[in-house]
C-alpha cells in the first residue's frame, strides 16, 4: 500500500519536473501565428491598414482585432493567403484602407529638395539618404513604395514612380491562345 503510494508520488514528482523543465527549455519565443501572418504581409510598412507597420497589423489579426482585408499592397492574393492560413472566408479588399496599386518607388526631385530631413524621419525602412540642408535621395532598391515620405515633404518634391519591367524581371505571361472559329479554314490548310 505504502509502496504503491510512494511509486505514484515518485512518478508524479518525476513527470512534474520533466514538464516543468520542458516548459522552460522548449518555450516558444513570440507568437508563431503572428510570425506566420507577418510572413504573408508585404512588409511595405505603409500603415494603410491602420496599424503602425506590418508586425503590429499581424499581431492585431492574430488577436482578432483586425480583419484580413486591410492590406492594399498585399492585394487580393495576400487576402487569399491570409484566409487560407487562418481558415477564414475570403473577402475582397476593404476599399476604406486603399486600393491595390502597381509597385512604385518614391523619387526625390533633387533640384527642388530643400534638405529638411522630414522624409528621412518618415521613412520606415531607412531608404532615404541625406542630411540637414543637404540634398536627399532615395535608395530605390530599398524603397517599399509606402508613400509615407510624400505627405511630410514641404517642397512637394517626392513623386511615386511605378517600377518598370526590365529584361531580368520580366515574367512570361500565362499561356492564353485565341480560339479561332472552326469554319472553312481547316480545309484550306489541309490542302
Amino acid at each position: 500500500m505504502i509502496s504503491a503510494l510512494l511509486v505514484m508520488l515518485g512518478l508524479a514528482l518525476a513527470l512534474g519536473a520533466a514538464l516543468g523543465a520542458a516548459s522552460v527549455l522548449f518555450r516558444t519565443q513570440g507568437d508563431p501565428l503572428v510570425d506566420k501572418i507577418d510572413a504573408i504581409l508585404p512588409q511595405t510598412q505603409c500603415g494603410q491598414c491602420g496599424y503602425p507597420g506590418c508586425k503590429p497589423y499581424a499581431t492585431a489579426i492574430a488577436g482578432g482585432e483586425a480583419d484580413i482585408n486591410q492590406c492594399p499592397p498585399g492585394g487580393d492574393e495576400g487576402v487569399r493567403k491570409l484566409a487560407d492560413l487562418l481558415g477564414r472566408e475570403y473577402k475582397p479588399l476593404n476599399a476604406e484602407h486603399g486600393v491595390e496599386k502597381p509597385k512604385a518607388v518614391a523619387v526625390i526631385d533633387e533640384a527642388t529638395c530643400i534638405g529638411c530631413t522630414l522624409c528621412i524621419q518618415a521613412c520606415p525602412v531607412d531608404a532615404i539618404v541625406g542630411a540637414a540642408k543637404q540634398m536627399h535621395t532615395i535608395v530605390a532598391d530599398l524603397c517599399t513604395g509606402c508613400e509615407l515620405c510624400v505627405a511630410p515633404c514641404p517642397a512637394d518634391c517626392i513623386a511615386m514612380v511605378p517600377v518598370a519591367d526590365t529584361v531580368d524581371t520580366w515574367k512570361w505571361r500565362y499561356p492564353v491562345f485565341e480560339l479561332k472559329p472552326v469554319t472553312h479554314a481547316p480545309a484550306k490548310e489541309a490542302a
Binding site: L41, P42, Q43, C54, K55, P124, V125, D126, L142, T144
Partner: peptide
C-alpha cells in the same frame, strides 16, 4: 525576389524601431 525584398524591408523596419 518579392520575398527577399520583404525580408530585407522587415529587417530594416525592425532595426529602425
Amino acid at each position: 525576389r518579392d520575398k527577399d525584398a520583404a525580408d530585407s524591408a522587415r529587417e530594416r523596419f525592425e532595426f529602425r524601431n
